[in-house]
Each structure stands twice: as C-alpha cells, then as structure tokens.
Design a protein around this nucleic acid. Sequence first.
DNA 1: CATTAATTTCAGTCTAGACAGAAACTAATG
DNA 2: CATTAGTTTCTGTCTAGACTGAAATTAATG
Lengths: 175, 175
Amino acid sequence: MKLTPIMQKYVLHWGEMGTRWGVNRTVAQIHALLYLSPTPLHAEDIADTLGVARSNVSTSLKELQGWNLIKIVHLMGDRRDHFESVKDLWDMFMVIIEERKRREIDPTLTMLRNCVLEGDADQETPPEIKQRIRDVLEFIETLTTWHEQMRTVPKPTLLKLMKLGGKITSFLGKK
Amino acid sequence: MKLTPIMQKYVLHWGEMGTRWGVNRTVAQIHALLYLSPTPLHAEDIADTLGVARSNVSTSLKELQGWNLIKIVHLMGDRRDHFESVKDLWDMFMVIIEERKRREIDPTLTMLRNCVLEGDADQETPPEIKQRIRDVLEFIETLTTWHEQMRTVPKPTLLKLMKLGGKITSFLGKK
DNA sequence: CATTAATTTCAGTCTAGACAGAAACTAATG
DNA sequence: CATTAGTTTCTGTCTAGACTGAAATTAATG
C-alpha cells in the first residue's frame, strides 16, 4: 500500500483529530487508512505504510476491534489476518457514539445517580449544589433517552429527518 | 471553598471525563467546580480547593474563557477577579459543540475540500479512494448543515422536539 | 509614585502514555 | 513434530504536554 500525497494528508489529519478527541494517534491513522483502502490490509502492510512498529499496529488493531470499527477477513491462500473498516459513514458514526456512550456516558450516569442518592443522607452539601448535580443528571438522561429513540430509527428515515432540518420546527410551532 | 465528599466525587469524575475527550484534567476540574459553586470564586480559592498551583489555575481559567464557558465578575470591595460558570446546561452544551465545531470540524472540512480539489488534477490516487474522501466530505457537510439549522431553534422548541423523540418518525412515515 | 495585591509568563521538572524491538507464544503446514 | 509464518506480550525508552514555583508584569490604592 503506497500513500499518494492526498491519502497522506487525509491519514495525518485524521490522526491529529484523533488526539484531540482522546484517541491514540496511531489508532486513528490506522482507521483512516483502512477506511480509504479498497482492499483489506494485513498488519505488516499497515506498519510499513504508516512507518510504525509492528507491535504498535497489533495493539491498535485490537483496540479498533474493541470499538467495532474494523473486522478481520481472511483471503484465499493467505494465512495472515486482514482487516477492513466499516465503510458506511452513518454506521461508523453510530458505532462510535454507541461506544462512547457505553464507556463514558453510562459510567457518568452511575456516578451522578450515586451522588444524588448519597445526597439524601448528606447534611453538609448545600441543597443548591445538590440541585445542580440533579440538573446534570436530568440533562444527560434527556439526551440519552433521545439517543435511545433515534438509535432504532432506520437510516433513510433519519436522513430524511436531517434533510428536513429547521422545517420541522414550523410544524411544531403550529402544534 | 471546602469540598464535601459528594462534590469531590463529582469534580474528580469530571476531570477524568475531560481527559477522555481531549480536555486537560485541571481545566475540566475547574469547570466542574465553578459549575457547582453557588458563588463566583477567585483564582487562589480554586487553587487551594483543588490543590494545584496558582499558575496552573491561571492558565486553565484563560482556556475556559477561550471556550466561552466562564466569565469574570467583580465583587464589591474586592480587587480580585472572580469567575463563574455558565449554569444553564443547554447553553453549556451548545457552546461546547459550537467551539469544537470551530476548532475541529471546520479545519477538517477545509482539509477535505482541499483533498477533493487536488484530486481532480491527481492521476495517481485511485478513483475509488477519491470517492471515499468525497463521501466523508458530504457526510460531515450534512451534519454541519443540520447543526446550523438546529442552532437557531429556540431552546424550548428544541426541548419539545427531543421529548417528542421517536414519535416524529411516525409523522415522517405518513408523509 | 512607592507600595502592595493580583495576575501572567517563563523555564525547568515530572509523568502518563505512546512506541519500538525483542522475546514469547500460537498455530498452520509438509 | 519440526519448521516457519504470524501475532501478541512485555520491558524499557522517549516525548508531549501538564504542572510547579519563581520571576516578571500589571494595576490599584493611599
């Protein structure tokens, strides 16, 4: 796999974006590379293309599998694992949201619920502050419920909804 | 400002979440603290409460101001700057999205458009790959347009919309 | 305009986590 | 079952960037 200047620019930028969102640079680069690649790639190919250590690639591929963003495929007459990325951008987007929710939002909800529970018995925390925490809990719960409902909506409907955009509000206004 | 166990838990968790989303831990902790605090706090108070260096607080406050998440207030008979956080969670959410868009999405769109432009003259990048990049550009543009429209919708309407949730699809289905 | 309070800047230290390379492991094939 | 290809684990190194504390700067007050 040889990278043309355009592909290089894309992969490097994606790596950079990764770091800004708390994702390891190499992981993000590999994902970008696999997204662009028309064919599945094996680990050594990836290592050579990106100029990183073979072991680093191995770890990153594991991580990407943990995110459900890539999967292993096997090619006829080749023992090596090959990897290909989810190509549908909507699916990719949803998968990422799903995972981040599971890893970050859900634990946060747990923490907030604990705070609220402990708050009942707690005399030292001012009521005002307890309320603030309850507000956050309620806010995130609202977002989560909404996400839960959107999750089940079929892709084309969702797309229609987005394309509709602001027009939906006029409908609401009349209601 | 003394932190009760509940407040401590909240602030520490928020700091942790920050790091997962590419935000400096101290910055996130200070933001959490200012959100909880019923009154504006001055830098030294924050430093003492969180146990970090005064200078570190100074830098972090600057950063939070850059994000439009906190603002300076002055108290009668006190020369020191005091800081208070945006308290409305919906506003806070919108401000964060706005800023991340400006800092990360907009540059990404620029990069993608450049790739597409350069792609016209470029003979070495396979058409399939060029198409992939165009797909990403289109996808992000769709999201951005949608965001642009939602941005102007008044808060209560937006809330109604979210509460409506899945029901909106049945309306679309009939259409 | 000297004094003091408050804030920012800067230079150096420290650390988490990314990364390389070697060693260990696993499993396919003749 | 030895050989070899492929993958993972592990240990140590390196570095970006968070953080500190001191020095420099700014601004308010009598």
